[in-house]
Nucleic acid binder design. Structure first.
Lengths: 200, 200
DNA sequence: TCTTGGTTTGACCAGATGGTCAAAAGGACG
DNA sequence: CGTCCTTTTGACCATCTGGTCAAACCAAGA
């Protein structure tokens, strides 16, 4: 029996979550302050705490929303599909996530860097189970000779690393590339890399 | 005419830097406190401030020490050597850095995530110059047909991403792999990946 | 218009945080 | 032992930080 959120509630909650994402993704949980977030959201601190009961609550809401979207692309890897195409498509989806949701990627990176205190159990259970399942699929493809015999776990790690790098290390990438756009070259490079790696 | 550091100075400065590395690499600059660092170093806060004039000073000393070691492996990439062997050796050196100095890797990651306020100019100048130089070398190898025609910048990014991932996302990697050792499989995987990618 | 419930705010609080300082304690060396 | 310089500490401070609360403000329906 939860009452429907009012127009103002929706607007302010969205503003707070966006502001929280800005701040938390840059400074991590401990390094972020409610004043910063309230400022970024255009609200006073007590007003912010009217919508979320604590700093923790904002962070938790963001992590919740993140984790679903984060595991989704791997979930979609289809054991019945064409192996190389499936893996390339997964890499492409992850790269698109980095491009379109870099703040979410950095929020996740910050959480992991701090030792993942709030999501370690999710990593240990949900994430591990999902990766185990998909690794078995990839191992099956390798055993059947449909792709080159690669360690499926490190293959998945490599996709995470290569795609998230462009969001997490954005500042460094741009410092090196100057005014050239990162993501076009990245897409071409990743396509070639995985095509050559996976061809038996 | 700087006086030579005493035995006690050396011991305490080393303890402070190690403690600072522990804390800063986990929580970032803003999220770390002097009390935490003093605790980890086994000193009182005023005593800590007797050796380093401020929180900033500890952090700056760590970044200084880091950056030299960080650029070194790429510097060693030899235009006269065998192309594939040189690039593989670079990847191997970076992977060894991740394995042996994970705290340094995470310190760097934290700094970049926060927008690299303290090292952006170094990235823009020193790092960019070094990468430009080595990218030209790799481009030359590609043009000469000695390696496959890959974008040298994204090749270098990929080495950074793939190696640092094991240090920066250590918690996640271990959560997925369970008790299996990450670095042995990683070395084999990276070797195969770059061998297949670079073979013309 | 009045009422009612959601919304916003200023003032406030306890504890944390970066940093200071004078004084005490320790070590090395004649 | 006495001296001098280094090292350590307890007490302290201003500011920041997460969070509370009562009161004021506003929007919308009766």
């Amino acid at each position: 029996m939860t009452k429907p959120a009012t127009r103002i509630q929706k607007r302010n909650q969205a503003a707070i979550l966006s502001a929280g994402l800005d701040i938390f993704s840059q400074y991590g949980f401990r390094g972020s302050t409610l004043d910063q977030i309230a400022d970024a959201a255009g609200l006073s601190k007590p007003n912010l705490l009217y919508y979320f009961s604590s700093k923790e609550a904002i962070h938790a809401a963001l992590l919740d929303r993140l984790l679903a979207d984060w595991l989704d692309p791997l979930q979609a890897l289809d054991a019945q599909g064409d192996p190389v195409r499936e893996i390339l498509a997964y890499a492409k989806r992850k790269l698109a996530l980095s491009k379109d949701y870099p703040r979410e990627s950095r929020l996740f990176a910050n959480e992991i860097l701090q030792g993942a205190p709030r999501i370690e159990s999710i990593l240990r259970h949900d994430l591990k189970a999902l990766v185990d399942e998909k690794a078995a699929v990839i191992q099956g493809w390798a055993d059947a000779g449909k792709i080159a015999p690669v360690d499926p776990y490190h293959l998945i790690f490599s996709i995470w690393a290569l795609t998230q790098h462009y969001a997490d290390f954005d500042v460094q990438v741009r410092a090196v590339l100057g005014d050239r756009a990162p993501y076009d070259g990245a897409a071409v490079f990743l396509d070639m890399l995985y095509r050559k790696l996976l061809t038996p």
